[in-house]
Design a protein around this nucleic acid. Structure first.
Lengths: 223, 223, 223, 223
DNA sequence: CATGAATGAGAGTTCATTCAT
DNA sequence: AATGAATGAACTCTCATTCAT
């Protein structure tokens, strides 16, 4: 029956993707051998090539998928929350939750861009630029309407982005900090950095963003 | 004579260090071949081994030196500024300036820890932990004395550290932002994150920290 | 019905043979991969093995079939034309026509013998030796009866054989030279090399040999 | 002393060239593995790459060198013997001697062109075309001045070239046929094919061409 | 001080082939 | 009849490193 089948091991293609994710995140693209991947995925190295092109293709697919998810989530936030304050709060929360719940994917995107060939890299950089533009616009709009204030928008944007991405490097779901608290905390810091009025915690909005991240990644954001 | 020699190209050992720094930062440890290093340093690959041990030794030396400089600077800040507010400001400024002026060294420390063997990594991690402890103590003391306030000290510490380290990833001395402004800006964000009174810009202290970074790295911090 | 089926694509086994012929001739046995074959034949690589044994079996079958046809044709010439002059003319014409009309098969036999294992190669070499013996005997008989003259029969035989086989390497049916002219031309050269009386063109004999090649190969020799 | 050194084994680069020559001729480019080459040359497979670029570079170097020698010899013949009859005789003799004495090089040029990439192949094909043009001009001039006669110059040229190149496939220096006889014999056949007056053997010219081949290849043509 | 020569190990990738479905 | 899945062995080539000179 289909029910019993659901308990089976995931198919090879998925196992390869998972192995690549884990190893690329842990040891880097160049530090990961094809034979590492094969062993972790439980196949022979030759069998990998049934399911993938080159090792670089595998990396590119992972990065593009991750960036696509981030972009999708970011765009949804922009649509759902036109107001600059809640828009930025949404971007921060979606970014932080994505990096906390999917540290492997996001770390690979952050660290392995240089491993891509020039043409492949360009496609990911284009996605990243588009994503960062959502942040840029939110800060710009907020400054224009007076709810944000900063002497250097670009610096603040980059500082906040690096700060939020850093979550992928240290957050552990086993730690004592709940995801919602984490996201809230980062929102507060971001608002502080932009000299905005302290954010009254909008529980409903936070729940919405948690559901959004869940939906976009296809993996539940617990708690 | 030695005087005329001073104008010549730097000695081989220094050229190797510089090549390693550049390449490890640009392509990662595993992405950098010994022949890359040799070519960039202007030697044959065999000649490298007159000046260095293994490739990993080279990486370890770079990382330990960088961490030692950061630690030295951090400790000096702690000695010079016992007050938690100016202490944290000092730590932020020293960290930001170090990362802005020495992005190669700091990026290598941040990104290539995983390339080290377990024992080598432990020594660097110990340094890093000691360094982070300076931040932890500053935040803790500030919270204890009421000048700082945060619902999760550890999270704030990590968020600020990631934010400040991120400078190495994007700051360009060719950009329009001056180093002093950069450091000031990050201090403001940090104070905002800790709900501290806005920092009145202490020009004298800022100069002191700039000199400190210059001294510790042996390379002038311009402007 | 069989009639409608006749218009369809050839069956898989024939498509494989044709693919092997084309690819072995164009890229050599070792330069042709099993996946090349499969793709060209329009099957999966696994499906190939329903119709063939190993890749070498495929090569061997092609070579033996080709040699069998050449031998059959050669033997028929010997039977039809006992006179050394017309016998040699027949051998030349049959060889030249076969190589001009079937350059793939003949090129594979000429170039890929070395790709066969020792035992397989021996069977083809035996056929080739038997075939060359028909030429040897024709030249020997002609010299014995005084219609041919050469200071080194073996050298002349090998020179003529290489010359005639070379046709497969350059003749194009799209060129301006008709097949019958080609065959006649080579006969003249052969007679010159053997100091024979110039051959009066025997149109009827030429037609007979053209029909013979058609029959033996199962493919019409046009014009 | 240098004298004793002269008796030593040839240097690695030369051993590699010799191994490549032998193996490419015997098993073809694709049939020859890098490990075959290494073993035959007496090095490890990694060491090969001290002396060569890719396997294809090695093949290309061999082919270009061979074609350069043939071209050099052919051009010298054209300069030394302007008269079409002796010119063609010279081309035949130089070609036959080169192929008999250097069957490995010439066989590789004849058989492995298809193994080269398009750009590399083009350079060799250009040389081959230039070489064949020497033959074309000799036949054309001879026909124009009436000393040669053929109904299809191009066919005759190709037939003669294939015939002469075939020598590399079967001639053995251990056989009973002397090189000078071989060259003379082929000259006679060529003259017969062109309906030229039988060539009175020009011993002096034959010696000159033997010396030429010796000189161009740097290897003595014995007898 | 500097390097050419050399290599075992391993890189990513393709090979011909088998087999359960 | 046909194939997706799978693999051990081999492929070309590069790796970090050593050593005699």
């Amino acid at each position: 029956m289909t029910v019993t089948k659901a308990a089976k091991a995931p198919p090879a293609a998925e196992r390869i993707r998972q192995a690549a994710l884990t190893l690329f995140a842990a040891k880097g693209f160049h530090g990961t051998g094809i034979r590492d991947l094969a062993e972790t995925a439980g196949l022979s190295s030759a069998s990998l090539y049934h399911y993938m092109g080159t090792k670089e293709d595998l990396l590119l697919a992972i990065m593009r998928e991750c960036m696509t998810r981030l972009l999708t989530a970011g765009r949804r936030v922009v649509l759902d929350d036109p107001d600059p304050r809640s828009r930025l709060a949404g971007l921060v929360q979606v970014h932080v939750l994505s990096h906390a719940v999917h540290p492997l994917e996001t770390a690979v995107v952050d660290n392995e861009l240089r491993a891509l060939s020039a043409t492949a890299r360009a496609t990911v950089v284009a996605q990243r630029d588009e994503y960062e533009d959502l942040w840029r616009a939110a800060i710009e709009d907020g400054c224009a309407s007076g709810v944000f204030r900063t002497s250097a928008q670009a610096v603040t944007r980059l500082a906040l982005l690096e700060m939020c991405s850093g979550v992928a490097r240290w957050y552990s779901p086993r730690g004592r900090l709940a995801l919602t608290e984490l996201a809230t905390h980062y929102t507060e810091i971001a608002f502080g950095a932009l000299h905005a009025e302290p954010s009254t915690v909008d529980v409903e909005a936070a729940r919405r963003r948690s559901r959004l991240v869940t939906e976009v990644w296809g993996v539940p954001v617990r708690r």
